[in-house]
Amino acid sequence: MKNRKKYFITSLVILGLLFTFVLSYEISYRLTGAKEAPTVEQTSSLQDDTLVVLRSKQQEGYVTDKVYTIKEVKELYKLSKKISKDDVKNIFTKEDYSLQEASDSRIVFNRNSTKFIPNKFYLGAKDDYLAIYKSNEKGELILENPDSDVFITKRKVSTLDDVSKNKIQTFQKYYETREEAEENITEFF
């Protein structure tokens, strides 16, 4: 009889410990599961009106290069309907940008180098005249055709207002196509 009482008490203690372990595991799982929810949200798709801001380091700080919406990014890079923050990060880190800030309404990327985005057309200056440069695969600026890409019959850069002069001298304006660059250079004439 004494042995039965020992087995009974031992069984109750083991059952109590097992119940306590299962209960504590369940409680900790639910608490930790609630904290992991935001990480799932990071891989969810972004809204089309979320802004993507590209900035470059200049002497006076960071200057905004371009601002896109997610919808424009999808069209520009021919992406599927849904795009996540990680997808956007992968796109712009290839163009020498690093993620600075990310929220549901805005994602900001900074570029610290003087390297330019490959295969884009930049507005700049050559011998104090407006010019259209093309960036090669390495991100270096070149004049493809100096005779037509330098606008010597137009206004000199030194005669522009300080804001416009700064945009031209720091190559802040860039475009996808030459036609786009030629169309937009007229704002400086």
Score class of each variant (00 low, 15 high):
residue 116 F to S: 12
residue 165 K to G: 02
residue 159 T to I: 08
residue 167 K to E: 15
residue 25 Y to K: 14
residue 48 D to W: 00
residue 162 D to T: 12
residue 150 V to P: 08
residue 83 I to Q: 03
residue 180 E to Y: 08
residue 180 E to M: 07
residue 171 F to C: 09
residue 3 N to H: 11
residue 89 K to H: 04
residue 153 T to A: 05
residue 69 T to V: 01
residue 61 G to T: 01
residue 94 K to D: 15
residue 80 S to N: 13
residue 45 S to M: 05
residue 30 R to I: 06
residue 62 Y to C: 04
residue 52 V to H: 00
residue 113 S to D: 13
residue 106 R to D: 01
residue 98 S to P: 05
residue 74 K to W: 00
residue 58 Q to Y: 03
residue 93 T to Y: 07
residue 176 E to Q: 12
residue 65 D to L: 08
residue 96 D to A: 07
residue 98 S to I: 13
residue 91 I to L: 06
residue 102 A to H: 04
residue 117 I to T: 14
residue 104 D to E: 14
residue 149 D to P: 02
residue 136 N to D: 15
residue 10 T to M: 10
residue 41 E to N: 10
residue 85 K to F: 01
residue 149 D to G: 00
residue 186 T to N: 02
residue 61 G to P: 02
residue 148 S to A: 08
residue 72 E to Q: 11
residue 38 P to C: 09
residue 170 T to H: 15
residue 177 T to K: 11
residue 86 D to G: 12
residue 29 Y to G: 09
residue 56 S to F: 02
residue 147 D to V: 07
residue 66 K to W: 03
residue 114 T to Y: 12
residue 43 T to M: 15
residue 115 K to Y: 07
residue 154 K to A: 04
residue 101 E to W: 10
residue 61 G to R: 06
residue 75 E to P: 00
residue 73 V to I: 07
residue 4 R to L: 12
residue 75 E to A: 03
residue 162 D to F: 08
residue 38 P to S: 12
residue 28 S to N: 13
residue 34 A to R: 15
residue 86 D to K: 13
residue 169 Q to E: 14
residue 163 V to D: 13
residue 142 I to F: 11
residue 128 D to I: 02
residue 162 D to K: 11
residue 18 L to I: 15
residue 133 Y to M: 03
residue 104 D to S: 14
residue 59 Q to C: 01
residue 73 V to L: 03
residue 43 T to Q: 15
residue 89 K to V: 00
residue 95 E to T: 08
residue 81 K to Q: 09
residue 159 T to D: 13
residue 146 P to K: 10
residue 94 K to G: 14
residue 61 G to A: 00
residue 59 Q to T: 10
residue 28 S to E: 15
residue 85 K to D: 07
residue 91 I to D: 04
residue 132 I to V: 13
residue 29 Y to P: 11
residue 65 D to W: 03
residue 52 V to F: 01
residue 91 I to G: 01
residue 111 R to C: 05
residue 158 S to Q: 04
residue 30 R to C: 10
residue 61 G to K: 04
residue 68 Y to H: 10
residue 13 V to F: 05
residue 110 N to G: 01
residue 69 T to H: 00
residue 65 D to M: 07
residue 71 K to V: 02
residue 6 K to N: 12
residue 57 K to Y: 03
residue 101 E to N: 07
residue 131 A to G: 04
residue 30 R to N: 15
residue 83 I to S: 07
residue 4 R to Q: 11
residue 26 E to Q: 15
residue 72 E to C: 00
residue 34 A to W: 06
residue 3 N to D: 13
residue 120 K to E: 04
residue 144 E to C: 04
residue 6 K to G: 05
residue 8 F to N: 14
residue 116 F to Y: 11
residue 153 T to N: 12
residue 40 V to Q: 14
residue 54 L to H: 10
residue 7 Y to T: 15
residue 22 V to Y: 09
residue 38 P to E: 10
residue 135 S to Y: 06
residue 97 Y to S: 03
residue 18 L to Y: 11
residue 171 F to L: 14
residue 122 Y to Q: 05
residue 21 F to R: 09
residue 167 K to L: 12
residue 148 S to C: 01
